[in-house]
Computed example of a mutant assay.
Amino acid sequence: MDHDMISKSTYFKRRPSKLKTWKYPDWKKGEWQLDHVCMDKNYHKEIYNVKVLRGTDTGSDHYMIKIKIKLTPLAKKNSHQKKKRTYDPHKLIQNGDYEAQTRDIKITDDLEEIIPKLKQIAEQVAPINPRKKHQWWNDECDEAVLDRHQAWLRHQNEKTEKSYLELTKQRKTTQKIIRRVKRQYQKDILLMIETNSEKTNSRDYYKIFGRQLQRYDPPTLMLKDKDNNLAHSNKIQKF
């Protein structure tokens, strides 16, 4: 059809006698399908059914058409996206430097001139710390990763054996630093759990212990016999 329309009155499977919508005044000439239901092809699935009600008395020579439709409202596109906050409001409340620095700002009726100055001071006094990859990640890990990236860039520019050896060495050093920091963090957690257990601080004990238990991944246990083969049966074997 024209204008990208779809005829829904003939879309559904019906017997030809169930599609007639108009009866000729002379009953000998039969009935005809004159009335149609059309819908845009992009939204034609919103019409679930089209049915001709032949038994309804409308006082007209046209039959009534029943349409089952479900209209889906269009989602409004939010053109005004929320800007990310560049300062931490909780730190501003606890920090007294913000109030001391904002006293020098002259109060005028022009808010567009005052607001940028207030935001600039807030960003300097209470900046938002970037989200860490892990709880144990610290500045030492960031520096090690940065050094590894710099070594990789030097190797991409030079492509020599010396640069490749330096890159390999820096990779191993970075891996050792990350592992050491992670292990130290885990030792500190175990020490905190032990300390809370000795001091009967049950609230902090179960809080820290439960948090670590959620991340626990049990190792896969394998049983071997004397010949160093996997034991697949339930029979008692000597190990």
Score class of each variant (00 low, 15 high):
residue 117 K to V: 14
residue 125 V to E: 01
residue 98 Y to Q: 11
residue 102 T to A: 14
residue 116 P to Q: 03
residue 122 A to R: 02
residue 102 T to R: 08
residue 114 I to D: 07
residue 118 L to V: 15
residue 103 R to H: 12
residue 122 A to C: 06
residue 117 K to I: 09
residue 121 I to V: 15
residue 108 T to K: 02
residue 102 T to F: 02
residue 100 A to F: 12
residue 108 T to H: 03
residue 115 I to D: 02
residue 101 Q to E: 10
residue 108 T to I: 08
residue 102 T to W: 04
residue 99 E to N: 10
residue 101 Q to R: 14
residue 115 I to K: 01
residue 127 P to V: 05
residue 122 A to Q: 06
residue 110 D to G: 06
residue 101 Q to N: 07
residue 105 I to R: 10
residue 117 K to P: 03
residue 107 I to R: 14
residue 111 L to S: 13
residue 97 D to V: 12
residue 125 V to Q: 00
residue 124 Q to M: 15
residue 113 E to M: 04
residue 119 K to P: 01
residue 112 E to I: 03
residue 126 A to N: 09
residue 121 I to N: 04
residue 100 A to K: 15
residue 116 P to K: 00
residue 122 A to W: 00
residue 108 T to A: 11
residue 112 E to S: 06
residue 102 T to S: 05
residue 97 D to N: 09
residue 106 K to H: 11
residue 110 D to V: 13
residue 101 Q to P: 06
residue 127 P to I: 09
residue 123 E to G: 05
residue 103 R to P: 07
residue 101 Q to S: 06
residue 120 Q to M: 04
residue 99 E to H: 10
residue 109 D to Q: 14
residue 110 D to T: 08
residue 101 Q to K: 15
residue 104 D to L: 13
residue 122 A to L: 05
residue 109 D to K: 09
residue 102 T to G: 09
residue 112 E to A: 04
residue 98 Y to C: 10
residue 103 R to V: 10
residue 106 K to F: 02
residue 123 E to D: 05
residue 127 P to L: 13
residue 127 P to T: 08
residue 122 A to P: 08
residue 110 D to M: 03
residue 118 L to T: 10
residue 119 K to F: 05
residue 124 Q to H: 12
residue 117 K to H: 06
residue 105 I to T: 08
residue 112 E to N: 09
residue 124 Q to D: 14
residue 103 R to C: 11
residue 97 D to Q: 14
residue 107 I to P: 00
residue 101 Q to I: 07
residue 122 A to F: 02
residue 104 D to A: 15
residue 99 E to G: 13
residue 117 K to D: 03
residue 100 A to P: 05
residue 98 Y to N: 11
residue 101 Q to W: 04
residue 103 R to S: 14
residue 100 A to V: 14
residue 106 K to R: 11
residue 124 Q to W: 05
residue 118 L to R: 08
residue 120 Q to L: 05
residue 122 A to N: 07
residue 106 K to I: 15
residue 121 I to A: 10
residue 115 I to W: 08
residue 119 K to I: 07
residue 117 K to R: 13
residue 118 L to I: 15
residue 104 D to P: 01
residue 120 Q to W: 00
residue 107 I to F: 14
residue 123 E to F: 00
residue 106 K to Q: 13
residue 116 P to M: 06
residue 109 D to P: 02
residue 114 I to W: 03
residue 101 Q to V: 08
residue 115 I to G: 02
residue 119 K to Q: 10
residue 113 E to Q: 08
residue 126 A to K: 03
residue 108 T to Q: 03
residue 112 E to Y: 01
residue 115 I to C: 04
residue 111 L to F: 00
residue 125 V to D: 00
residue 107 I to A: 11
residue 123 E to M: 12
residue 127 P to W: 01
residue 109 D to T: 11
residue 113 E to F: 01
residue 126 A to M: 12
residue 108 T to D: 01
residue 107 I to C: 09
residue 103 R to K: 15
residue 115 I to Y: 03
residue 120 Q to A: 12
residue 108 T to P: 02
residue 109 D to W: 09
residue 113 E to Y: 00
residue 111 L to D: 04
residue 111 L to P: 13
residue 126 A to V: 08
residue 127 P to M: 09
